[in-house]
Design a binder for these strands. Structure first.
Lengths: 335, 335
DNA sequence: CTGAAAGCGCTTACAG
DNA sequence: CTGAAAGCGCTTACAG
């Protein structure tokens, strides 16, 4: 790769001025461009394998075709990556590129990550969180900022999963298949604190609304805010002891994993003796046997939507992304 | 945020020339800089909250303080993220920023991602793969390129996990605790193909070497190249049927998960009746009960090292990163 | 010890 | 329909 060709090189080769070259390459809809000249420019550009220097263009235009992505922790879930991929997909479609950085959730680190991106002249910024929480993001005026899977105290535009509908659908899916005796594991008042979650409340509400529509309630609910396998295990045991159920809704996949363990121990087969539905669609869900039917957190789509909003500019305050049902093998229809 | 202050603004405020300002801000070790002038410059810069425009600097210097990260698939494993985090950590330490992009593993897509980064004038590039494979990366001269968790046909510098040592240590860990009757699940000739893996061979070799050192061999080995829970499940059943073992080494955590299922079904308790050691340390490993003792694939460190090599320039052909033993609860010492 | 000037590679009024 | 010139914000020889 020899020295990179410059606009001037192209102009020289085409026998035209840099002005003209710039015009045709950027497809300025002018009276300009005789087809002949345009042809020559394109040929020269192709021959020299010309690629505009983004730094020069950035300097001149004050735009970088770059958007910054700041995440609270790229490390924690694999699904972080799905969000990044969504971002990347639309960035690529629109010929933008993404700069990434990690901040914790501490306000000062967020502010400094923001500053970094602004220094780098990002044309827009998306903050991504792994769990939908409320964070503190300074409002900055210059470029569009959108939060992906988060809400800010300052009311910045955000994209969030549609948890109400997901809750509704999860319950509805069971109801539709004839289940009436359903337990829920993972209720928690504490989780309603926006610092911990801004969506769980909607998830609960959706669940309750679906049951209410059928004129029923959960036959039993297990409290618990730490949604790990242990809760599912102990919770399911509690359910089995207290009452009879045909289905359990688990607060998330890890809890469902615990339910599987408890069911197996008790000799209950899934889905024949017990149906299980859950939320998140993490890694685990497809490793379990039978595979888990679960409502997916749409990281990829949240990434896509966030990027679209940033690029289009003027994003609405809140946009909800559907959580698709991943229909697998953990539910059976009651005859 | 008003208009961003420029070098000239600082100069004006300090009553000095832009030249001088640039000198002191970049700490040029010249005869220049009377402490007085330097002081005034710094004060002015601080007051205006001056931040150099990277586009301008990039244009001038031809350096962008940016490195490109191209991954085969950000999506697949959560560990992708650990590698990214490693990259980010050192980039931040050295005041660089990272641009990301995804390519598949098809040569043409790789080439075009590469081109994108080069267009953007990245100062260096790291390719990251999720599974250590061989890929086709065009050799490009201009900037340092290193492969993280991959090897290229073209012999580009790469960083890889030290699988030989990991294999050795995994077996040694069991041997040291008195185990002699050990089975292995997941042997496969097919996996020795570099297109599928460039490290599995070393993992096998390390395992074998450790046993050989103790003058023993595996009492049974189960073939299999698809390292999923099913293999572990069926493989463990095969082992239990054919012979007696005190420990099983699983080719990876998913296989180990299958071993757990089979053991539980047979009434064998881990680690009391059966010890299990494995590789990868994925998500799953800490969800199993007991938690799995496993050799970690050092995504984070591979990311760090790759970034360091790129930034330092002139990277060696191959650098090996240790795979730390994650000591958890799936092994017991034989009395 | 300090400053005036040129130039990195673009784009865009402005003239012709 | 086309071109000469200025300028985006820096840094670095070069002079003084």
């Amino acid at each position: 790769m020899a020295k990179r060709a410059t606009l001037t090189d192209v102009a020289r080769l085409a026998g035209l001025s840099p002005t003209t070259v710039s015009m045709v390459l950027n497809e300025r809809p002018n009276s300009r461009l005789s087809e002949d000249a345009a042809e020559r420019v394109r040929a020269a550009a192709a021959k020299l394998n010309y690629r505009p220097n983004p730094a020069a263009r950035g300097l001149r235009l004050g735009k970088t075709r770059t958007v910054g992505f700041i995440s609270d922790e790229v490390t924690i879930t694999r699904y972080a990556s799905a969000m990044i991929r969504g971002l990347l997909e639309v960035a690529e479609e629109r010929d933008h590129t993404v700069l990434i950085s990690e901040s914790g959730r501490r306000a000062d680190r967020i502010a400094s990550a923001l500053e970094l991106m602004l220094d780098r002249q990002a044309d827009g910024i998306v903050f991504g969180l792994m769990g939908a929480k409320q964070i503190d993001v300074p409002v900055i005026a210059d470029v569009p900022v959108v939060l992906s899977n988060a809400r800010s105290a300052s009311g910045l535009p955000c994209v969030l999963p549609d948890e109400f509908r997901a809750g509704f659908e999860a319950a509805h899916y069971l109801l539709e298949r004839g289940h009436r005796r359903i337990a829920f594991i993972g209720r928690s008042e504490a989780l309603l604190d926006p610092v911990l979650s801004v969506t769980i409340g909607a998830r609960y509400a959706g669940l309750d609304a679906a049951l209410a529509e059928s004129g029923i309630e959960f036959v039993h609910q297990v409290d618990g805010r730490f949604w790990e396998p242990d809760l599912g295990y102990a919770g399911a045991q509690e359910v089995f002891q207290r009452t009879e159920v045909t289905a359990i809704i688990a607060a998330n996949d890890r809890v469902a994993f615990g339910v599987y363990q408890a069911a197996q121990e008790r000799g209950l087969r899934i889905p024949d003796d017990l149906s299980v539905v859950s939320f998140d669609d993490e890694y685990l869900a497809s490793y379990l046997r039978p595979q888990l039917t679960t409502m997916q957190i749409p990281y990829l789509d949240m990434g896509r939507v966030a990027m679209e909003l940033v690029l289009d500019g003027d994003p609405p305050t809140e946009t909800l992304v559907p959580m698709p049902l991943q229909e697998r093998g953990s539910v059976r229809a009651l005859s």
